[in-house]
Computed example of a mutant assay.
Amino acid sequence: MMIKTLIHSLYDKKASLPHKASYYHQAIDEIESHSISPQIYHLLKEKGHLEKTPLFFQVRLKQKYDEVLFQNILIKSETDKILHGLEKGGIETIPLKGVYFAQEYFGHLAARGTSDIDILIKKETIEDTVQLVKSLGFKQEEEWIPDHFHCSFSKPISGSPVPLVVEIHWGIVKEKTSHLKMDPFWKEATSLEDNSYIKRLSDQHTFYMICLHGWRHNLDSPRYYLDIIQVISRLNNRIDLHSLFQQARKDGTLKRMVRTLSIVYGEYPMLESMMKLPVKRQRKERKGGLFRYWDFIDFQFLSYDTFGHSVREVYNWCFPRKKDIFTELNKKYQKSSYINSIFLLYNARLGKALKATYVFVRGANQP
C-alpha cells in the first residue's frame, strides 16, 4: 500500500515525506480509489507539509477536498434538519461519524468525506424517529433485519445521482453477537452545543465505536486506519485503554477490539509513543490468496468472545438472507428462489477459492 508511507510521515514527527515525484503519481491514484483525498489534504495542510509535495498532487487533492466541502455542507444541512426535529420532539439522539465527527476529530467540515447520515437513538423511540425522518422526505430503503442494529432510509438529492441515506442506529454491533448494552454510552454522553436532547458520545466511547466500525469492515480501506489514528492523535493519550478493554471484556467485544488495534498498531508502530497498547495480538504478515482466506475466516468467525456468538456467525454466513446473497455477489436483487440464490452464492465462493488456491500453488512452485 503506497499511501502507508505517507500516512506514517503525517503522524510520526521523526519521519519525512517521500521525495520522488513518481511516488506521488502512484499514491494519488490509490488515495482517490479509497476516497481519502480530503483527509490527506487537510492533514498535509494542518502540519505545514502540503507545499512540500508536487504541484499536481496538491491540485488533485484540493479538487476532491472542494467537492467534499460542498457535499458535506449539503449533508450537514440535512443532518441539522433531522436533529432539529428530534430535539423539538424530545427524542434523545447522538450523531455518529459523519460531519460532526469530521469537525471534532479532524478539525474541519471537509476534512473527511461522508456519504450518509448516521444517528443513534434509544430503541424505544424507533417509531417516533422513523416518522420524523419520513416527514422530511426519506423513504425506507431496505427491509427490517432481525437482530440487526440499524435501519436505513433514503431520498433523492437535487444534482446528485446518488440518494442521501440516513441510518437510524439503536446499537453499534449486531444483536446476539455480544453482550454490549448502550446504557453506558448514553450515561456518559453530553449535550451537543445548546441542545437538551441532542448529545455527543464521550471521547472514550467515540473511540470504541470507531474501532468496532473499522472491525466490521475488516479494515479493508485506509480510511478506517485513518479514523482510528486520528482519534488517538487528536485525544493525545486521553483514552483509558485499560478501562475500555475492561468494558469490551464485559460487552463480549474484546477480541474485536484487540484484533483491530493489533492490526493498526502493527501497520503504524509509531502509535505506541502516542498511546501504549496494553494487549496486543501477535500477527505475522503473510501474503497470497490462501492467507487472505485465513484472514477472512479469522475475522468472520474467530473475532467473537464466546463460542455461541461464533456459531451464530457461521450459520449466518452459510445461510445468509437473500438480500445479503446478492450484496455479496455484487448483483442487483433478483426475485429467484432461495435455493437458486444459495447455489449462485456457493458457486461464486467456490470459484474464488479455486482461483486463490491456483495462485498460491503457482507461486509456491516458482523458483
Rank of each mutant, 00 (worst) to 15 (best):
Asp305Pro: 02
Lys81Ile: 03
Ile229Ser: 06
Gln63Cys: 09
Leu271Thr: 00
Lys355Trp: 07
Leu192Glu: 02
Gln246Phe: 08
Arg256Val: 01
Lys122Arg: 06
Ile168Tyr: 00
Leu344Phe: 10
Lys199Asn: 14
Lys155Arg: 10
Gly48Val: 00
Leu201Val: 03
Pro320Lys: 07
Gln63Phe: 10
Tyr333Leu: 06
Gly214Glu: 02
Gly363Glu: 13
Leu354Tyr: 05
Ala189His: 04
Ile119Gln: 04
Ile229Tyr: 03
His19Pro: 14
Gly89Lys: 10
Pro161His: 14
Glu175Leu: 15
Glu188Asp: 15
Asp227Pro: 12
Gln140Arg: 12
Trp215Gln: 12
Ser262Glu: 00
Gln247Asn: 12
Leu241Tyr: 05
Glu285Met: 12
Ala102Trp: 00
Ile31Glu: 00
Phe56Asp: 05
Glu167Lys: 15
Lys88Ala: 08
Tyr24Met: 07
Glu141Cys: 07
His148Ser: 07
Lys4Glu: 02
Leu302Arg: 12
Gln103Thr: 01
Tyr265Ala: 08
Ser336Asn: 15
Ser221Asn: 12
Glu188Met: 12
Ile232Arg: 11
Arg223Asn: 06
Ile263Thr: 06
Gly107Trp: 02
Gly113Ser: 14
Lys62Gly: 04
Tyr346Val: 12
Asp227Asn: 13
Thr206Ala: 13
Asp324Val: 10
Phe101Tyr: 09
Asn72Asp: 01
Asn195His: 14
Asn330Arg: 14
Phe153Cys: 02
Phe185Gly: 03
Ser196Thr: 14
Gly159Glu: 02
Trp170Ser: 08
Ser9Glu: 02
Ile73Ala: 12
Asn330Lys: 11
Glu188Trp: 09
Glu193Trp: 11
Ile325Ser: 05
Lys123Met: 03
Cys211Gly: 08
Leu344Trp: 11
Leu302His: 15
Lys20Val: 05
Lys284Gln: 08
Asp324Thr: 15
Gly85Lys: 14
Ala15Arg: 04
Met182Tyr: 01
Leu302Pro: 10
Pro367Leu: 10
Asp29Ala: 08
Met270Gln: 09
Val68Met: 11
Ile297Gly: 11
Asn72Tyr: 00
His25Ala: 13
Lys176Gln: 08
Lys352Pro: 07
Ser178Gln: 04
Ser115Cys: 06
Gly137Asp: 03
Met2Phe: 06
Leu277Val: 00
Pro54His: 04
Ser196Glu: 13
Leu226Phe: 01
Lys276Tyr: 07
Ile232Asn: 14
Lys355Cys: 14
Phe326Gly: 08
Glu104Tyr: 09
Pro278Glu: 01
Tyr225Met: 10
Arg112Glu: 01
Val68Lys: 11
Gln63Ala: 08
Gln246Glu: 10
Val279Arg: 07
Leu109Met: 07
Trp144Thr: 10
Ile229Asp: 02
Val99Thr: 04
Phe185His: 09
Gly252Lys: 05
Leu345Thr: 00
Met2Ala: 09
Thr206Val: 04
Arg249Lys: 13
Pro18Tyr: 00
Tyr23Val: 01
Val258Glu: 00
Ser221Arg: 13
Asn316Met: 06
Leu17Ile: 03
Tyr23Cys: 09
Lys13Glu: 05
Ile325Leu: 11
Glu175Cys: 10
Lys280Asp: 01
Ile198Gly: 02
Ile325Phe: 13
Glu92Gly: 09
Gly363Cys: 07
